[in-house]
Design a protein around this nucleic acid. Structure first.
Lengths: 125, 125
DNA sequence: ATCATTGTATTAGGTGCTTAATACAATGAT
DNA sequence: ATCATTGTATTAAGCACCTAATACAATGAT
């Protein structure tokens, strides 16, 4: 699995986001067991304490649960996962629109820029 | 002027982004004089050192220049400003599309979500 | 000439994040 | 019963960022 950690924000927040993403996109399916804290930390090249912190917050949010000594598991509440996925999508759209409007682009300009850049994205195959 | 500083990222990077935005959107027009470091720091409720750091980086990037004791000014190079504006827009679109695709949305879904949320944005007048 | 204002530099201290090195209790496998 | 593995907790150190408190040289206004 790929972990993309940058230096411009706290690592533990990036871990939260990326684990959340793996859950929402099905890389970690509902009910499945996650690798151990130590293994995940090794994968992501971070300290186990940092990974533990991210996992603890995801557990508090309800996306994960723990069986004390057998490991951590993804929630089986698929409705919750869908809800998180939609919330993230909405957040991304809102933040994106805010930035573009602040820059001075109007709705039609935004739409055309996006569709233009989508074409270019599709080229890479 | 509004300054929106959060705690999840270094303050000086947020200052850079927001000053850059004010330049690109015309709040600080080409050739105009900026408030003094101390005044800007007071406006944004940050330490003068932190504001100074942000301004120094924008100066290194060429968006600002300094007359040693009379103040800082926005570049008169309007082409450069346009270029920065377009680069920012491209970056925002790419980051946005990346996030949405990672979440599992395809092109047509993305377009419809955006146009749907644009309607709702337009309501607030 | 004097003085307030400009950008700039320096020092010290505090805070949050990260890492490293341990340690411990609980459990599943042998 | 023993042992490796699980999550969890603790302590110490280092680092980047931020603030506070100064200080100084250069310039424009008076």
């Amino acid at each position: 699995m790929h972990w993309d950690i940058k230096t411009d924000r706290p690592i533990y927040t990036q871990l939260i986001e990326q684990i959340q993403l793996k859950i929402c996109s099905g890389v970690y399916p509902p009910g499945s067991r996650l690798p151990s804290v130590r293994d995940l930390a090794r994968e992501a090249s971070v300290n186990p304490n940092t990974m533990q912190r991210a996992l603890a917050e995801l557990e508090e949010a309800g996306l994960l649960y723990t069986h004390r000594t057998s490991g951590r598991f993804v929630t089986e509440d698929t409705d919750m996962i869908k809800h998180v996925k939609n919330s993230l999508a909405e957040k991304h759209v809102q933040e994106f629109l805010k930035k573009m409007i602040e820059l001075g682009f109007d709705s039609s300009e935004i739409m055309s820029i996006i569709s233009e850049m989508m074409k270019r994205e599709g080229d890479e195959t």
